[in-house]
């Protein structure tokens, strides 16, 4: 599915062009999706209006229970158009609670894997420490559920996944990306403003994608599956990732490999992005080929 051929281009339905609610519905089986804490529950952020920012009725996170290929699942989708997908107190707690409830349902006899659609710049700066705490709760809830059921992360684009939420992405059992998607701890503009344009030129899109893009992240084993921006391709990849069940060892626990990866790179003379996969493979750092 990664090769872009004309027929596939013409037939496909873009996933990137969907909003968060449409994305969550598109992944679940037809007619099975049921939204929790939806817009009419009006659980919006109490911190935005006092700062002169218009809130959104769902605080930018959509929680959808339903069936995935016939079995129960929960999908949590971040809306990238609202405040850059920033995670605040309410949106973060919605995600963390959905994961904890999936763990509770699993323990009670209804296995409930989770799918996280992560288009986010990380913590919403207007909510500062509350946002940081919420991201920590999300990470902790991922750890709770992934011991019982797969937690599948999807970064489809076009925003990408940065900041604290990139840590959440790295904790996922499996990570699916498109070529348009990006994944990194510090966003390009943060690096440029902190370290200067000599260190990183945030207007250089080929540079950004050569480092943070889906192809590079999958090629270097930091993500698992590269898919075409297509609703059917995404849904198939998500179903496959859930069906694959629990890995022998979670990526974030493969400390030896991650340490080898760090040791194989000299920060004073970093390799070309295209050479990184080879450098890491020689160092025995790359993932187990999943």
């Amino acid at each position: 599915m990664t090769r872009t051929d004309w027929q596939a281009m013409l037939r496909r339905t873009s996933f990137i062009e969907l909003n968060a609610r449409q994305r969550a519905r598109a992944l679940l089986d037809d007619g099975s999706a049921r939204e929790l804490c939806g817009p009419f529950d009006r659980i919006e952020s109490p911190w935005l209006e006092p700062q002169g920012v218009v809130p959104q009725s769902d605080d930018g996170v959509v929680v959808m229970k339903g069936a995935l290929d016939g079995d129960p699942a929960v999908v949590v989708a971040v809306e990238q158009a609202f405040q850059g997908g920033g995670i605040g107190e309410v949106s973060g707690v919605k995600m963390a609670t959905a994961l904890s409830l999936a763990a509770r349902d699993t323990r009670a006899g209804t296995p409930t894997p989770a799918v996280l659609l992560l288009e986010t710049g990380g913590v919403r700066l207007q909510e500062a420490n509350l946002g940081l705490a919420a991201v920590a709760e999300v990470c902790s809830a991922i750890l709770e559920l992934r011991a019982l059921q797969p937690v599948v992360g999807v970064i489809a684009g076009s925003l990408g996944c940065y900041g604290g939420m990139s840590i959440a992405a790295a904790l996922c059992t499996r990570l699916i990306m498109t070529e348009e998607a990006r994944l990194g701890l510090n966003g390009p503009e943060v690096i440029e403003s902190e370290a200067g344009i000599e260190e990183f030129d945030a207007s250089d899109h080929p540079l950004i994608w050569s480092l943070d893009g889906g192809r590079q992240r999958v090629g270097t084993g930091l993500a698992d599956t590269l898919v075409l921006d297509d609703v059917t391709a995404l849904r198939t990849a998500v179903i496959d990732a859930v069906r694959a069940g629990m890995p022998a060892e979670q990526r974030s626990r493969r400390i030896k490999e991650l340490r080898a990866a760090l040791e194989a790179v000299d920060p004073a003379r970093p390799p070309e992005p295209a050479a990184l996969a080879d450098v890491w493979a020689r160092a025995g750092a790359k993932g187990d080929g999943r």
């Binding site: 909003n19 939806g38 009419f40 809130p55 959104q56 009725s57 609202f82």
Partner: peptide, 15 residues
Amino acid sequence: RTHVGVVGSGDLEVL
């Protein structure tokens, strides 16, 4: 009741 749109740049949500 119905909900449409997103509070994103150049857009609005309607409840």
